[in-house]
């Protein structure tokens, strides 16, 4: 491109810049083939992301005969809610659903409470021994005793085969704690100090001033913890062997991989019965997946807008 062309382009760009005001930089360039291609690529990737979920719902709502008649089944021809009915009539399933709700609600509250309190303590660098506390919190991020000692310790504490094993041992995710700490660092110290001069305790300062001013981060961390608790199966797999104490994910895992454990139950009977199927095995599995995913889908869009803000406040600091 020659110099005149470049100058013209620069002038055009400047005009654009002036016209639109300055948002994010690259947004001020004119539409090009690149922009269109990029948009097309994004749409394609979005489809790739969404399609598997769509296909889950599709199969969950189909019946055996319909899927098997067609080589390629992509659009619903017949909708059938039988699998959802079978899932909800199953006591083991409902039970584990409630277990997961319990673990998620209680676990998130507990995790959020002790890690935000610790984060607040760590944000006070004037406190003697601050560095030691910080190092105590940091080390577990990079070093662990390994699975077996952990297993033996948790068993020794007496949490084996108790639903609390999903709440108490893995209560703190150090990474989340640090995000909260960084965000608390930004709460104006003058606010806290003036409250203290007025006779407020650290306790009041924390719950009345620091927490409310850090709401985006707290909301984000609550979501992260909640999703982690909802999705956790590892602790249950290690420590719980009573089917009635299983969280949803563990029941789901059994339904996907290990039908034999469910033979005595209602779902097992339905699965066994697949030669004369009212309900298609895979529809049943997919119905369980839908039920396990919907709660996340419900909270996700509302909190999604906080992520970037929450992470940005917490993580990206020089």
């Amino acid at each position: 491109m020659g110099a005149p062309g470049r100058a013209a382009k620069a002038a055009r760009n400047t005009a654009r810049v002036r016209g639109k005001g300055f948002g994010s930089g690259p947004a001020s360039h004119p539409t090009t083939v690149g922009t269109v291609l990029n948009g097309a690529l994004m749409v394609l990737l979005a489809l790739v992301t969404i399609f598997p979920f769509y296909y889950v719902v599709l199969i969950a709502l189909s019946d055996y005969a319909t899927v098997h008649k067609q080589i390629l089944y992509i659009f619903p021809t017949k909708i059938n809610f039988e699998s959802f009915r079978a899932v909800f009539e199953e006591r083991t399933f409902l039970n584990s659903f409630l277990n997961s709700v319990f673990v998620t609600v209680v676990g998130t509250a507990y995790s959020l409470l002790i890690s935000s309190m610790a984060a607040y303590a760590l944000s006070k660098d004037r406190v003697p021994g601050h560095r030691i506390l910080f190092i105590i919190a940091i080390i577990p991020m990079f070093f662990s005793g390994g699975l077996i000692p952990y297993y033996l310790t948790v068993s020794a504490v007496g949490l084996s085969n108790s639903i609390w094993v999903m709440v108490i041992p893995a209560a703190i995710t150090t990474f989340y704690l640090l995000l909260m700490k960084n965000s608390f660092d930004d709460v104006p110290k003058s606010l806290e100090e003036s409250a203290k001069i007025d006779g407020a305790t650290d306790f009041t300062v924390f719950f009345r001033i620091v927490l409310p001013t850090s709401m985006p981060v707290i909301a984000t961390m609550a979501l992260f913890y909640a999703v982690d608790k909802w999705n956790d199966y590892y602790l249950a797999m290690l420590f719980i062997n009573d089917l009635n104490k299983y969280p949803l994910q563990m029941t789901l895992r059994e339904i996907l991989n290990n039908f034999t454990r469910f033979q005595g139950t209602g779902i097992g009977a339905v699965i066994q019965n697949q030669q004369t199927p009212i309900v298609y095995t895979r529809s049943l599995q997919m119905a369980v997946i839908v039920v396990a995913t919907v709660p996340i889908l419900c909270v996700y869009p509302f909190l999604q807008k906080h992520f970037t803000k929450g992470i940005m406040l917490g993580a990206v600091k020089e």
Partner: peptide, 26 residues
């Protein structure tokens, strides 16, 4: 600053029992 230490106490207990004891257990 005693209040501040109290804030760290529950997390400290959790760290000691569930990460540092297993580290020693290694």
């Amino acid at each position: 600053n005693r209040g501040i230490y109290l804030f760290f106490l529950p997390a400290l207990a959790a760290y000691l029992v569930f990460t540092y004891v297993p580290m020693y257990g290694a």
